[in-house]
């Protein structure tokens, strides 16, 4: 390398550093630093500040454990429901062959632009004892349903709020599958169900995985939905963490529980991704 090239390389490096500095600073200030703080609080005791695992062990307390299990149950159910609703919908959207993808995205983003709280409170009004559903039911002489303040109401809210996060990634991968690939499968003798099971479903797996992640994580950690639709009767893990910070003013316990939840989510996602990688290329059928 001659001198000129050396100087150029140096300049390039400097420019790279300069251009990337805002992002580096952002990452440090808003991602790494908060994470370090959560880890610090989570692993230190409230009174002395010494190292302790007590905050993490809190999750094993019977009440907290039950809360975690209920949270996982509800978010798993919501995620599966989202998948079951979103996949056929995304398939139908794909077969419409819309010219502009923007329109479809808009269709599903539009409700999301509405305030999250507003949407959830709207559901509260619909499900209430004297809400829209029960008014309609009693108008036709049917007994009232008791949905509000039950796990059903929470699941309903989660599905409604997080459905777009499932539809969009799945629709994206589906719309990238070429018509000729599907025709090739038909040409080789596959009927519609076989094409779906052996070609479309495996090819859309990346979208499914990302949809699962994007619905499961917010479902597991939300406390607003359970607050509004669960009426405080049903305690989810997100709510417990909120209470630790706000009511008990115990940052250490809150951070400890958050850490446990984070690790739990991380493991779940690792399992999903590993399954995805494993099945790739090997015989699924």
């Amino acid at each position: 390398m001659n001198k000129r090239e050396g100087r150029l390389a140096k300049q390039n490096k400097l420019r790279q550093l300069l251009l990337s500095s805002p992002y580096v600073l952002w990452s440090i200030g808003f991602i790494i630093l908060p994470l370090v703080m959560v880890v610090y609080y989570g692993l230190t005791s409230r009174d002395g500040g010494g190292f302790t695992l007590e905050n993490l062990k809190l999750i094993w307390e019977p009440t907290h454990r039950a809360t975690l299990i209920l949270s996982v149950q509800l978010s798993v159910i919501s995620t599966i429901l989202c998948l079951l609703i979103a996949y056929p919908l995304a398939l139908a959207l794909r077969s419409l062959r819309l010219k502009s993808n923007g329109f479809v995205i808009l269709l599903f983003m539009l409700p999301m632009w509405m305030n999250f709280l507003l949407r959830t409170i709207a559901w509260q009004n619909i499900l209430e004892k004297n809400g829209v559903i029960n008014m309609l039911l009693s108008a036709v002489g049917l007994p009232k349903l008791n949905i509000i303040n039950t796990p059903t109401a929470i699941v309903l809210g989660m599905v409604y709020d997080f459905l777009p996060f499932m539809i969009i990634p799945i629709y994206n991968v589906l719309s990238k599958i070429g018509d000729d690939v599907i025709q090739a499968a038909a040409d080789l003798g596959a009927n519609y169900f076989q094409i779906l099971w052996r070609v479309i479903l495996p090819l859309s797996k990346p979208g499914i995985v990302s949809g699962l992640t994007m619905v499961f994580v917010p479902s597991l950690t939300t406390f607003v939905i359970s607050d509004i639709l669960g009426g405080g009767n049903i305690l989810l893990i997100g709510k417990v963490i909120e209470q630790k910070f706000k009511m008990a003013n115990d940052w250490n316990a809150g951070c400890g529980l958050s850490l446990v939840l984070m690790v739990f989510i991380f493991i779940c996602m690792a399992i999903v991704q590993k399954y995805d990688k494993d099945s790739e290329g090997t015989s699924v059928w």
Binding site: D180, V181, Q183, A184, L188, V199, K205
Partner: peptide, 20 residues
């Protein structure tokens, strides 16, 4: 329908199943 016909097609862009 195509899947009931005794003929096969080779497509312009190969149309291989990339997951297999």
């Amino acid at each position: 329908p195509p899947n009931k016909r005794q003929l096969n097609t080779v497509f312009q862009k190969y149309a291989l199943f990339t997951h297999m």
